[in-house]
């Protein structure tokens, strides 16, 4: 980032290639829409680019990056909440695609073992819904902890809370997931 600050455009491209995938995945798991996640990721990178000259390396770059991303994602989730309520109940029967976009149910051609595919898909759907049901801040904490593997110090800076508060937040989130996913958890614990 210091090279980007010094005006090295090539370094910005390197940053982009290094962090775009984790950032898009984080945002996708926050907003549950691929297109929106990519739009938000672009906004994050543009903000980083605009602020490059004012960048002070007081914290890790990932902390700064995910703090911008988390704020944008939380705003977006709050804006979308009311829009989702307006989705028509008359919509055709579809199944959630892996990328979260609605897609017509047509898996027979691609999956010879359709029964196993449907079971796996149902599991993933259950897990996704359990994560979606978490309060936004808990969801962000779980995603940063589980998928970005950031340490408690970094996550607490991103979410602007103390480490102790973060540990409580994560504990409550995992407790909720444990209850929501009880059938799968029992199945998994037996293995």
């Amino acid at each position: 980032m210091l090279d980007v600050k010094a005006g090295d455009e090539q370094s910005f491209t390197l940053l982009l290639h290094r962090y775009r995938r984790p950032l898009i995945n984080f945002l996708y798991r926050m907003v549950r829409n691929r297109e929106q996640a990519e739009d938000l990721a672009q906004e994050v990178f543009i903000r980083v680019y605009r602020a490059r000259e004012d960048y002070i390396p007081s914290a890790k770059f990932t902390t700064w990056l995910f703090r911008i991303a988390t704020n944008l994602a939380l705003n977006s989730v709050r804006d979308n909440r009311y829009q989702r309520m307006e989705i028509s109940l008359d919509a055709p029967v579809t199944v959630d695609a892996e990328d979260g976009e609605e897609k017509a149910l047509d898996v027979t051609e691609q999956h010879p073992n359709i029964e196993q595919h449907l079971v796996d898909e149902a599991r993933r759907k259950m897990i996704r819904h359990a994560i979606d049901k978490l309060p936004e801040k808990q969801r962000a904490a779980v995603l940063l902890h589980k998928y970005q593997e950031l340490d408690y110090g970094e996550i607490s800076k991103i979410l602007q809370c103390s480490e102790s508060a973060l540990k409580s937040l994560l504990f409550r989130a995992y407790e909720t997931l444990r209850v929501e996913l009880a059938p799968l958890v029992a199945q998994q614990a037996r293995q």
């Binding site: 897990i127 996704r128 994560i131 589980k146 997931l177 029992a186 998994q188 614990a189």
Partner: peptide, 9 residues
């Protein structure tokens, strides 16, 4: 178990 399940996504 929750941790393992989250890996499935």
């Amino acid at each position: 178990a929750v941790n393992v399940l989250l890996d499935e996504l």
